[in-house]
Design a protein around this nucleic acid. Structure first.
Lengths: 193, 193, 193, 193
DNA sequence: AATGAATGAGCTTTCATTCAT
DNA sequence: TATGAATGAAAGCTCATTCAT
């Protein structure tokens, strides 16, 4: 069975690709149309605006967050969970690279974009906080640990890593996700005991 | 003695400010001229084109790196040194925010910008590697530690933190530099023993 | 018996309405289709292009003129006839407002439109001239009156009034058709005696 | 001494001319620039908007009204004054033909244009009303005459004539200003006695 | 050394119209 | 017969840059 690709998708894909490579302003509607293999005016029949394209991408992003969120079920082991959070976030950033980049590059143009982009790390942080609180009560985590700071700290760590991985590629600074998780996540977890 | 501000500086300052706020493409020559309080064409008398302004900023950045680099003299204590590296880098990013942002936002337009921006973390990493290697020999650092990975890891950590601090401000994810250093750097250092 | 409204009519009505309100260029095919409740391309099935719509309206206008013309039978009394001409013309303008307006607004685009629009006043003038000539011979009208000028004058008067009525509405300059006829037409007629 | 024509004037003149010939929407900025012999973007440096061009024309119109208004000093003779009003208005319309035409053609696009265009006839009407009222008191005008209606009527007459003169040119309906004044104005005046 | 005026290329968007179903 | 999708041309407007003073 042949899976037909709709014009909407063709345009959005081309947009996403160019966005990632060139940023918002540099991604002209003419280039998008060209890359999508449609006429420039077709683009405007499908998406009222250039901004509409961003909004559409954000929509996708948001529904993906919910999927990820729903799929995350704590395992009971802190190290496993920390590692899963790290992986999950890294994959998410990779899948939505384009949005993350304009989130940084052009967020001033899309006031709501920043807060949308921050939603996943915030949710993940929330999950961590509740997990860690439980573990603190059960004694799994040291009673002196400040949960709020620790969770923020951890999210910052993996968010920073994801950004560097995906933005400063080929700079000699990027370390593999595996190495990163092996080292930092374990360290982090160990220290909570 | 009155310190006169030259037209060159007026323009570069205005450019830097707008760059940080609005990104490269959104920072039009008209706006720069306006912000600098000079005529738009004056701008072109001083800098051959818009890209030249970026190059000029990069130049400044490079010489600042050397200054920083020269000023860094290892103390002999791993924790102190790690903390100094973190502080130093954070201040540097803050001082050159505009460049860092376009490094991410518009690096595709300035192929050389990315490698320039990466220079400081690379240099800092190099310093760390040599310091840690010494300490490994002297037994200050555990013989099993992989220096290369550990250093990269550490730089990634503080670079990520700096980016988040400066990009995702007011999102609830940003933690103070002090908290960050207190927690992560110490943890990091502790674990090397 | 149900009087069905054809698609042709739906489109022409919508076009006429929009034309009157917004002028020719501002009346886009999209808006026409929307107002008529049909698909935009349906419009092109029914009328080869946008200009065809104007031509169709003009056609209607022309056949209406003939009807009016045929229905005008001089009464024998100059005042009555002048008043009837005035009323008749005013109603006609009102009924074909849309065309009159584009006749003024956009006549340059429809070179033939102007001469079509001028047909009714010309015919009415002709009627007046022949009526007045008769009356001049019968002594009903003063022998010194220049018929040609007088008739033109009269037509100018009512045409001008009609235009102002329909264009400069709500400006404080528009006087009712009744007042206008009472005053000017009577004056005009009186003076011919 | 050579009277230099400024770019502003070149553009406004070209605009005015095209406006008169082709209406607002059909008068594209490209055509204006071409007709004015300047680059299209120069146009936007001089007038922020296409609409600004209309506003500028209206401005001129308004100050011309004041000049006309200030220059009108009643002579004391009703016929003379009526004739002067007619002439004056006719010349005014001729001088501002472009505006009058878009006033009719495209007034819906410039909500304020209509009321501006109506200002001169309104002022002239006011003058007539006060003149006629005086004359009624002095017995120069018949006590039974309704001043308000009569003045409106008169203005309607000359406004209608002016419009037809300038819009329906070469249609066989246009009579010379001289003939018009000779016949109608005199008739009108006579009847007031 | 600095300005104001001018430019051409390019932008996003809307138009009337045609094609395939 | 009627539709929805697609198109090329042209619209108004902004950009970085140059020219003449």
């Amino acid at each position: 069975m042949v899976q037909k690709i709709t014009t909407d998708e063709k345009i959005l894909n081309a947009f996403s690709k160019l966005l990632e490579e060139n940023g918002y302003t540099e991604t002209t509607t003419k280039k998008i149309a060209q890359a999508a293999g449609v006429n420039e005016s077709t683009l405007f029949r499908h998406f009222k605006d250039k901004e509409q394209l961003v909004k559409e991408l954000v929509q996708k992003y948001m529904s993906d967050i919910d999927t990820v969120n729903a799929g995350f079920i704590p395992s009971g082991d802190i190290v496993t969970d920390l590692m899963r959070v790290a992986d999950l976030y890294n994959h998410f950033v990779e899948a939505h690279k384009a949005l993350f980049l304009i989130g940084m590059r052009d967020s001033f143009q899309f006031p709501k974009l920043k807060e949308m982009i921050i939603q996943l790390p915030m949710k993940l942080k929330k999950i961590l906080v509740s997990r860690m609180t439980e573990m603190k009560h059960s004694g799994e985590i040291n009673g002196l640990v400040n949960i709020e700071i620790t969770a923020t700290n951890y999210i910052t760590l993996i968010l920073g890593h994801a950004l560097i991985q995906n933005i400063y590629t080929d700079t000699g600074l990027d370390i593999s996700q595996v190495d990163f998780v092996q080292k930092n996540v374990r360290d982090f977890a160990e220290h909570l005991k």
